[in-house]
Design a protein around this nucleic acid. Sequence first.
DNA 1: CTGGATGCCTGGGAGC
DNA 2: TGCTCCCAGGCATCCA
Length: 274
Amino acid sequence: MPELPEVECLRRSLARIVGRRVVRAELFRLDVTSWIGDANDGAAWTGLPPGNEIFALHRRGKQLAIETRGGGVLVIHLGMSGQTLLDSTRVERTHTHACWTLDDGSTLSFRDPRRFGGLWAGRDIQAVENVLWKGLGADALNVTATMIQSVTRASKRAIKSILLDQRVVAGIGNIYADEALFDAGIRPTSRRTLSDTLANRLAASIRSTLNAAITRGGSTLRDYVDASGSAGSAQHLHRVYGRGGECCVSCGGVLRQISFLQRTTVFCPRCQPA
DNA sequence: CTGGATGCCTGGGAGC
DNA sequence: TGCTCCCAGGCATCCA
């Protein structure tokens, strides 16, 4: 569920760890951890090597990278239910898979009940970009009409399938795909090549939908909270997601909910013509 | 090249 | 109240 806006809000809420030195790394579940490329030098997996100073927070699509000075980058993917918490006051220790203590006494922890997410350790940010993020498309905040239009021209894939493909554009999941397509007036199942007008409209819809969600702190449907444990309120902006059978905010017609691409898809039959 | 089906995983909600 | 069932979906993988 955490998509680009939620991960971006998480990134921003972690700003105060920049400049902090890692004191201790504790791992409770090794099976959520991986190495990037040849990063495994035989030492134990720590994600953030103790002794290193955190100096940058990067995001690409739905993935967050915490870079330390002198090498050692931790990449976090929240999957469906992941949380990255700073100084969590909640006693909730269940499903916490890793924890790092910083030199100001604060703790950074990663929880993920469903374990669809994970942690990756890389040598440096170049390794992350060249290996882990190599296949990812442009970040969805920077999507252009051309990027989408060229794919619709080259294939007959449904537009929603294209938007969900992280290799084309990184950061869009089921919620914002439906929201952006509604905003652009395009049916999710459409397989037509997008005209210049529609491609421009869709690119603008994606950017504005994501930015609006970021402004509201992301969408919290159940699990998402930022590093301080605060929920977002962007779910109140949703116009189609989770509203199947309800009235279209634009035309008043009934929103249709279908199963498409093994996902729940909601659209307005009138505002998003086939 | 496609999409469909499946599995991973847990918590929450519905239904009985 | 408590049980079972189903569903949510990001992503990898195999299959048609």
